[in-house]
């Protein structure tokens, strides 16, 4: 059965930071349509801070997620700092004590991250937030697993569902957060939080798959 050796997986965070940094301009552009236009800048700032603090990634995945979560909480304010900070810290907590990550452990990790974000933010699916990528992604992971798919296929299902979830935010009207100010005017553009969440989940899926033994 395939699994990821956690002690050797700290580089996942470096890959997440690179992915966010690459898409910085795109994320800001999406945010600019219905927000302040600083989502990419702030996200890249926080992820790159964590990435450089991590250095050549000799830490394990739990310690790296903790470092990332702490950096986002301490370095980025607004809503995204606490939401993504909580996401990674809760995932790190779910990993504690484990040496490897298998499909069951990954499911627990994703649910812990999701629960933390949902509890803190108080948004519901359909409110045009990062949850609209995250909730269907975790559900797709669960469904694939229940259908007997292997770890890699479960991650593929998660990444594909995150993308569909992100794209579905285009037709939603924002109910919470900054874009909610715009009401109907928020329809027709993607949610920046759902876009960054989808990017994170896709990168996470690819990074874990590459490390499977």
């Amino acid at each position: 059965m395939s699994a990821v050796v956690l002690a050797e997986a700290g580089g996942v965070v470096t890959e997440l930071a690179a992915a966010i940094s690459d898409k910085r301009a795109w994320l800001s552009e999406i945010d600019g349509a219905i927000g302040d236009g600083d989502h990419g800048i702030n996200m890249a700032k926080g992820f790159m801070q964590a990435s450089s603090a991590l250095g050549p990634a000799t830490e394990g995945l739990a310690a790296s997620f903790t470092l990332l979560g702490d950096t986002l909480l301490g370095g980025i304010g607004g809503s995204m700092g606490p939401l993504y900070g909580t996401f990674f810290l809760e995932m790190a907590n779910a990993l504690s004590g484990a040496a490897t990550l298998d499909v069951a452990g990954c499911g627990r990790m994703l649910h812990a991250g999701l629960a933390g974000v949902a509890e803190l933010g108080g948004a519901k699916p359909g409110d045009k937030t990062m949850l609209d990528a995250l909730v269907p992604a975790v559900a797709a992971f669960d469904a694939a697993r229940a259908a007997g798919a292997d770890f890699a296929a479960c991650l593929d299902a998660m990444a594909a569902a995150a993308e569909r979830g992100r794209d579905a935010t285009r037709e939603m009207v924002a109910k919470v957060g900054r874009a909610a100010r715009l009401g109907e005017r928020s329809r027709g553009v993607l949610d920046a939080g759902a876009a960054s969440c989808c990017l994170i989940l896709q990168t996470l899926a690819a990074a874990l798959k590459r490390r499977m033994t």
């Binding site: 302040d36 600083d38 702030n42 909480l73 301490g74 370095g75 980025i76 304010g77 607004g78 809503s79 700092g81 606490p82 900070g85």
Partner: peptide
């Protein structure tokens, strides 16, 4: 930051 909540 401008128009953005302080950190926790």
């Amino acid at each position: 930051e401008i128009f953005s909540s302080p950190t926790a």
